[in-house]
Amino acid sequence: MKLNRNLTDQEILEKIKSKSDPNQAISQLYSQHYGMLEHYIIQNSGSADDAADLIQEAMLVFVKLVSEEKYRGEASVKSFLYSICKNLWITELRRRKSTEARHERYEGEKDQLESDISAQISKNENLKFVMDLFDKLGEKCKQLLMLFYFEELPMKEIGEKLEFSSEQVLRNKKYKCLQSLTDQVKSSPALSKNLQKALRHE
């Protein structure tokens, strides 16, 4: 993991939003903030393994909030990541039947940015469920959808990479893969319930 130079907070946000060299942005977040985040978890009854899991989760929440422009650098990246981690860890402690008092005290301190964090953490729970469904798709489907929706490559390039005979065949395959995923989403009772709640804006 070699970095040419340190990016500024704003450059990191730009790289995440534009997905240009996302590895560099994420690598720098790790090298600059992992120690601080890990220290927080360990100081609050967590282990190094808890920290590793939680920080990965925090990074996912971070990129999602940045991508959706819910975070534009109002606070420093460091304090924003710290807030996400704190939020996630409190949620995790609640799961582990930690004291309600701590949670209530924390709830009272929330500001708008932290509300966005909480909301994103909750959304990510659903997304994680769908990601698990995505993981169960065939390798070709996963590659295709990833190249299209994450790497945002043009169809022509994807076709060459995955050796499709024509763009139409690729297009059909893509919709087939996507359809397979959405069908699984709809047939998942827990997820379907959450989606309906979301549609009703509950």
């Binding site: 990129v63 991508s67 659903n126 769908v130 469904l133 993981d135 990833m146 929706y149 994450f150």
Partner: peptide, 9 residues
């Protein structure tokens, strides 16, 4: 949500 999940993956 499927598209968002693929991107997040």
């Amino acid at each position: 949500i499927s598209r968002a999940a693929v991107e997040l993956a």
